[in-house]
Amino acid sequence: MAVIEKQSSEQHEGDVTCLAYHNGQLFSGGADGKIKIWDNDLNLIKSVDAHDSYIYAMAINSNNGKLYSSSCDGCVKFMAPPYDQTEQLFCCDDAIQAMYCDGDILYTGDEKGVVTNWIDDKIKFKYNLVEEVKSLGAEKSLIYTVRDLDVVVSDMIAGKSGKYSNKAVLPGKSPLALVGPVIDDKRTFLVFADRSGKGLSLVKNLPQQKFESVWNLTNCHELIIQAICGDENTVFSGGYDNKVKGWTNLEQTIPTPLGEVEVGSCVNALVCSGNKRVYIGASDGFVRRAKFV
């Protein structure tokens, strides 16, 4: 069973394109170039004119709360608490469509397939992974990237700038997410859309398990999946069919369905807040909070 508990008090002009959650606050990025900050009950705290155009992605440093955002103008900016204004990290000619923070380390992925590793807001390494990066994850020395056909797991070679080796190539499509309990600083599972875009695949992520498949849910959505998020015990997905669906007992060969909610608009972004709650960013400009029981 699942219900929509709350809807945001205001909306973006155009789509909500990305979401981030930290320390009891929700951040939404939109096609209007604004980043809106909400409390847990989706009351607006403030709205920041972050970019001149469409925001592609956001990532948040879980240690200090610094929020990074990228736009189709080629710029990556950041805001530190209390999130009053943005500062520019860099600008380039290539669209940064995906970002991820692994603790203090920021990763950005662009349309030419270059993943850049940032430490203390300075470039450490660049990795040319060849294929456009639409979704991105990272843990320790591993980078997880995906476009439309394959999820690629790359191992960064310590001490050698830009050198990496491929650990795995898995059939799949954007988006992807690292989920499950943390063991030795690594998430237990990797989940992503299958090549049809309508199903979900979950594989084991711990090093000794060699990305072994746990389950595949074919055609669990009627239309293409746009967003995936998860935590220690749950996975949520949503997309063009205007629905968000949830699963738990991820380690089973068939996960347990938690139900679904009808959003009424295309689901562009999801982020978990714990206790089987998920925030939903949609194409109508509103943010919603759903509770799965």
Results as ranks from 00 to 15, higher is better:
142 L>T: 04
91 C>K: 03
92 C>P: 05
257 P>W: 10
266 C>Q: 13
195 R>G: 11
214 V>P: 12
149 L>Y: 12
211 F>N: 04
47 S>Q: 12
257 P>Q: 10
192 F>N: 09
120 D>T: 13
273 S>M: 10
5 E>K: 14
214 V>K: 13
164 Y>D: 02
192 F>P: 13
225 I>E: 02
98 A>Y: 02
85 Q>E: 14
252 Q>A: 14
259 G>L: 09
57 A>D: 02
27 F>L: 01
116 T>D: 00
59 A>C: 03
271 V>E: 04
38 W>K: 09
152 V>Q: 09
291 K>R: 14
228 I>Y: 03
35 I>Y: 08
162 G>V: 05
17 T>S: 15
194 D>N: 13
213 S>R: 15
86 T>S: 13
123 I>D: 00
243 K>N: 10
76 V>P: 00
184 D>K: 15
145 T>Y: 06
153 V>S: 08
258 L>M: 14
218 T>F: 06
206 L>M: 13
256 T>D: 10
240 Y>K: 14
135 S>T: 07
193 A>M: 11
286 F>Y: 15
23 N>P: 05
201 S>E: 13
85 Q>W: 12
4 I>C: 04
176 L>N: 10
73 D>P: 03
248 T>N: 04
133 V>C: 12
211 F>A: 08
260 E>T: 14
93 D>K: 03
90 F>A: 01
14 G>H: 07
236 F>G: 03
121 D>K: 03
288 R>M: 13
266 C>D: 11
126 K>L: 00
82 P>Y: 11
282 A>Y: 06
11 Q>T: 14
165 S>I: 15
217 L>A: 11
18 C>F: 01
265 S>W: 11
273 S>F: 04
170 L>C: 12
175 P>N: 01
8 S>E: 09
65 G>N: 07
69 S>M: 05
123 I>F: 00
267 V>C: 04
33 G>W: 05
161 S>C: 05
178 L>C: 10
222 E>P: 11
104 D>V: 11
20 A>I: 06
15 D>S: 15
177 A>G: 08
178 L>Y: 06
261 V>D: 03
221 H>C: 06
270 L>G: 11
22 H>Y: 15
287 V>Y: 08
185 D>I: 05
261 V>T: 03
95 A>F: 03
232 E>W: 12
279 Y>E: 00
135 S>A: 07
66 K>Y: 06
270 L>T: 11
31 A>E: 12
267 V>Q: 00
280 I>H: 02
221 H>R: 00
104 D>H: 10
208 Q>D: 15
220 C>A: 07
231 D>N: 15
136 L>Q: 04
140 K>W: 00
100 Y>H: 15
133 V>A: 01
83 Y>K: 04
108 T>S: 12
24 G>D: 09
199 G>F: 08
117 N>S: 10
185 D>G: 06
290 A>E: 03
39 D>K: 14
292 F>Q: 09
55 I>D: 00
91 C>A: 08
13 E>I: 15
60 I>L: 06
284 D>N: 15
34 K>C: 05
179 V>R: 07
80 A>F: 11
137 G>T: 07
186 K>W: 08
37 I>R: 08
89 L>E: 08
53 S>G: 02
38 W>H: 12
142 L>I: 09
16 V>W: 08
211 F>V: 02
190 L>K: 14
94 D>I: 00
90 F>Y: 07
271 V>G: 04
36 K>L: 06
201 S>D: 10
49 D>K: 14
230 G>S: 12
